[in-house]
Amino acid sequence: MLGEVLVESDQRPTEPPVFARTGIRVLGSFESRQAPEKLAELIVDRVKQAAPTGSLVLQAFTPDSPAGNRLADEADALLETVRTRLPKDRLLEETWRAREAGAMLVELCVAPGAVMVGSVPAREALSLSPGGRQRMRRPGDAPSRAAMKLEEALINMPFEPGRGEVCVDLGAAPGGWTQRLVARGARVIAVDTAKLLPELAEHQRVEHVHMSAFDYTPEEPADWLFCDMAWRPLEVAQLLAKWGRRGWATHLVANIKLPMKDKNPILLRVRHILTEDGGWQSLTIRQLYHDRDEVTVTAHRAGTL
């Protein structure tokens, strides 16, 4: 342990950790009592050794703990000091372009008593946000905080629902995810026995199917399947597997609730059901910043990438 909420390992895990927000290869660790200018020199030296060429995305974060959060201003100040010592033509300002540009993500972790610098290729990063804390603003017209979970899930994907694409939203009511999909120009089939917000129920690109998600059968394959139901995780996984197995959707974004204390055995079974029974590929399971006792699943149907 490096400190509260920070964990180190000598080996890289074979699967991305579900409950980790970020993961970096530590290039150096320094005592934080040193002058900021000296710290910046040490950090820049390590960065240049590890990544002598190519584009860089430079970020700073603090551990997500009470003691860590108090160091936010210190982290911002150190970030700016380091930034001035790196060639401007190497710093990529548009973080969202980091993966396609083949950039290296460099993160400064300012923790109580220590400062660490680490890196990871942006294409392999768990998140492109500092420390994996992707803070989303809840839209003023959003019916619930569920909208933030969806926005965070989509911002971490290489693509998202486009204008005119067909999205099925299982367990849609009251419409938090449907609302955000409509805002992107998609056509949404919202499946739920409960009511949607009136403005969504009357929207020309929303079809509300008053039916249980477990009983619904689509008339034609959809581009995207979305699901955020407060239901037993294995039953939800089996439902999503059915959609993959029958080719009813191309892309998947789902939220799986995990209220139990020992979550890992259930996660292993969820992964098996989705991949082995459902045929979903490129599966990711992550607890995002806006998730609570739940995880977000993304996947694609075989042969769609």
Score class of each variant (00 low, 15 high):
Glu4Ile: 11
Val5Gly: 06
Arg12Leu: 08
Phe19Asp: 08
Thr22Ser: 02
Val26His: 05
Leu27Ser: 03
Gly28Gln: 05
Pro36Gly: 08
Leu42Arg: 08
Lys48Trp: 11
Gln49Leu: 14
Thr53Asp: 10
Leu56His: 08
Ala60Cys: 12
Thr62Cys: 11
Pro63Gln: 06
Asp64His: 15
Gly68Leu: 14
Asn69Trp: 15
Leu71Phe: 03
Glu74Lys: 07
Leu79Ala: 05
Leu79Ile: 05
Glu80Cys: 09
Glu80Asn: 12
Thr84Tyr: 14
Leu91Tyr: 04
Arg97Ala: 15
Gly102Phe: 13
Leu105Asn: 06
Val106Asp: 05
Cys109Lys: 03
Val115Lys: 07
Met116Ile: 09
Gly118Arg: 13
Ala122Gln: 12
Glu124Tyr: 12
Ala125Glu: 10
Leu128Gly: 11
Arg133Ala: 15
Arg135Pro: 00
Arg138Trp: 10
Met157Tyr: 08
Pro161Cys: 11
Val166Asn: 12
Pro174Ile: 07
Gly175Val: 07
Arg180Trp: 09
Arg180Thr: 07
Leu181Val: 00
Val182Phe: 02
Ala183Lys: 07
Thr193Met: 14
Leu196Met: 04
Leu196Ala: 13
Glu207Thr: 13
Glu207Leu: 15
His208Met: 14
His210Tyr: 12
Ser212Asp: 10
Tyr216Trp: 04
Tyr216Asn: 03
Asp223Val: 05
Trp224Phe: 03
Trp224His: 03
Asp228Asn: 04
Arg232Gln: 04
Leu240Ala: 00
Arg245Met: 00
His251Val: 00
Ala254Cys: 13
Lys257Ile: 02
Lys257Leu: 00
Val270Met: 03
Arg271Gln: 06
Ile273Gln: 02
Leu274Met: 01
Leu274Glu: 07
Asp277Pro: 01
Gln281Ile: 02
Arg286Ala: 01
Asp293Gln: 08
Val295Asp: 01
Thr296Tyr: 04
Val297Ile: 04
Ala302Asp: 11
Thr304Pro: 00
